[in-house]
């Protein structure tokens, strides 16, 4: 089993949406995929047609000391999601603390699942300096904009693959930054996720983009990304 996480260079670059889309795309490539939401916002499930009202999740299970495995949802054969669950802000604090203190906690849990899945995709908070859960494949996600360019100068291990999301070819500045990164950033993933209206639309329909708009350019881009991930094994 391989674990993968996307880390936004800053907030709002679309990691959660991309994780959902990527999980679906990997599943389309006949991989067994588990999507794991470690964010208290509990947004990942919404991309995958979980009802907003569903409060179950591993965090809630931990709080109630019931088996965390049973909080999972089966979306399709070999495509599973383990949501965070809905907790109040006060209830989130002890969970966050235990996450921070017991770093080996989740890797152990995932190890117990390793025979069931090829991939586990983890959605976790961007703001943390290091991953809560260390993953085999960690990809930084950025927009081709000046803010991300500035952040790139200082942040993180430089060999971590860098993926550009939400690229709008009409915008000259984005094209120029993409060109600059192509020349100066060897870690740049050689493909783009384009800014496609189909992406927000698919969230509105509570589906990953590959399911809602399989013919859109963004869906094709995510499919290429999935193939690229497979090639990294």
């Amino acid at each position: 089993m391989k674990s993968l996480t996307l880390r936004g260079l800053r907030g709002g670059v679309g990691c959660t949406t991309l994780i959902a889309a990527l999980g679906y795309a990997l599943h389309q490539l006949r991989q067994r995929v588990l999507l794991l939401d470690l964010c208290p916002e509990n947004m990942l499930g919404l991309h995958l047609n979980l009802p907003w009202s569903a409060a179950e999740g591993w965090a809630q299970a931990d709080k109630q000391q019931s088996p965390w495995q049973e909080a999972a949802w089966c979306l399709s054969q070999d495509l599973w999601i383990l949501p965070y669950g809905r907790l109040s802000y006060a209830e989130q604090q002890p969970i966050a603390q235990s996450l921070n203190q017991q770093l080996e906690h989740w890797p152990e849990r995932l190890a117990s699942l390793s025979s069931h899945f090829d991939w586990v995709l983890i959605d976790q908070k961007t703001a943390e300096p290091l991953s809560l859960v260390a993953c085999d494949l960690e990809i930084r996600v950025a927009h081709a904009d000046p803010a991300c360019h500035a952040l790139l100068q200082s942040s993180l291990p430089p060999d971590m693959p860098l993926l550009v999301n939400n690229f709008d070819p009409i915008r000259k500045l984005q094209r120029d930054i993409w060109l600059l990164w192509q020349q100066t950033r060897p870690e740049l993933v050689p493909l783009l996720i384009h800014a496609d209206e189909a992406v927000p639309e698919s969230l509105a329909c509570k589906a990953p983009v590959g399911h809602h708009a399989p013919q859109s350019l963004a869906a094709k881009n995510v499919a290429s990304l999935a193939a690229w991930c497979l090639s990294k094994e």
Binding site: N49, P67, A72, W73, C74, L75, H116
Partner: peptide, 10 residues
């Protein structure tokens, strides 16, 4: 996509 509750380990 039709989510159904279940247990991952099984």
């Amino acid at each position: 996509l039709a989510p159904s509750a279940g247990s991952v380990s099984s």
